[in-house]
């Protein structure tokens, strides 16, 4: 197994009596891009903040580049790039001043990379941060993070509110960052299309827990969709092996199933509907099925059984 860059072990966080992150464990290998996906309030930001050492976990622990997030030295912190949700910048600074301000905190600083990254987002160094568009703010904040040449990049919803051109620039920047295979990215996002393009792995978080930890490939090949036309309005979910989520549109039912096998197929044909069809490898529908499934917290698909490394 390859070297692990980011890991969490039974990471748990309570705010008062409210459980926000529930026994989250994962291990992300070096050189990979991981998409952390989940609904608003699922616990993604809290997980990332604990990874960055900005919040103390109630229980469990987490490590980035082999050091517990609660005991980083300033030197270690320089190796980890982090952008917060909303891309905060000091609004009265010019772009070049924000670079000057930021570089004081770091040992390494690559000014050429800064110029290249802001150019990709169409920003000039003389613009005032407060007057930048959201996409440009994302560009500056990403550039400020990348210039310190970190080994790990943790991005909290970087594509929030970005236009298509800025999203493209963001994806290109992420792919460039990992191109030599020695650096690792973890990003939380709602953009499933972007995840499908740039990610190697996904972590799917529902109700404070990780339901899926798999490579994109394993996720797509193990999740499939069945559609069937039925006259009935209810079905017993437990009658279908591997069922993740069932949705009904008129008399057309769609079943998202993990590890569909002979038994699944015969259970589905026992429903006695017409026009039973199978569709494979549909990434976004698979993700949406998991996110829609809130009743039951058991996972059919996790790292151990997926054999996904």
């Amino acid at each position: 197994m390859s070297e692990i860059s980011i890991s969490a072990n039974a990471l748990t966080k309570y705010f008062g009596s409210r459980l926000v992150v529930d026994q989250v464990s994962f291990a992300l290998p070096k050189g990979t891009v991981t998409g952390l996906i989940g609904l608003n309030g699922a616990g993604k930001t809290t997980t990332l903040r604990m990874l960055m050492g900005l919040l103390a976990p109630t229980r469990g622990h987490c490590e980035v580049l082999g050091v517990d997030s609660r005991s980083w030295t300033p030197e270690h912190r320089c190796r980890i790039g982090y952008t917060v949700e909303g891309h905060f910048l000091y609004s009265w600074m010019k772009v070049r001043e924000s670079e000057f301000f930021q570089r004081k905190s770091f040992d390494r600083w690559n000014s050429v990379l800064f110029q290249q990254t802001i150019a990709r987002f169409g920003i000039s160094p003389d613009q005032v941060c407060g007057r930048l568009s959201r996409g440009q703010r994302a560009g500056v904040s990403l550039a400020l993070t990348l210039c310190a040449e970190p080994d790990v990049l943790i991005l909290d919803d970087p594509s929030l509110g970005l236009d298509p051109i800025s999203r493209r620039a963001l994806n290109a920047t992420i792919l460039d960052f990992v191109a030599d295979g020695t650096r690792t990215v973890l990003l939380s996002t709602h953009m499933l299309d972007d995840v499908e393009r740039v990610a190697d792995r996904i972590l799917l978080m529902v109700n404070s827990r990780i339901l899926v930890d798999a490579t994109l490939d394993a996720f797509c090949s193990r999740t499939c969709m069945w559609t069937v036309e039925l006259d009935q309005n209810t079905i017993a979910p437990h009658s279908i092996p591997g069922l993740v989520h069932a949705t009904q549109l008129g008399n057309r039912w769609q079943f998202a199933v993990v590890d569909s096998d002979q038994e699944t197929e015969s259970a589905l044909s026992r429903l006695d509907g017409s026009n039973l069809q199978r569709h494979d490898g549909v990434f976004d529908e698979g993700v949406i099925a998991y996110l829609s499934r809130t009743r039951d917290n058991t996972s059919f698909l996790n790292a151990q059984t997926a054999g996904a490394r």
Binding site: V33, R168, N171, A172, L175, A179, R197, V198, A199, D200, L216, D217
Partner: peptide, 17 residues
């Protein structure tokens, strides 16, 4: 693999696959 991944803006592993 790298060239096509860059052109299409996708993860190189997807091209490998």
């Amino acid at each position: 693999i790298r060239g096509l991944a860059k052109e299409l803006l996708i993860n190189p592993n997807t091209v490998v696959k």
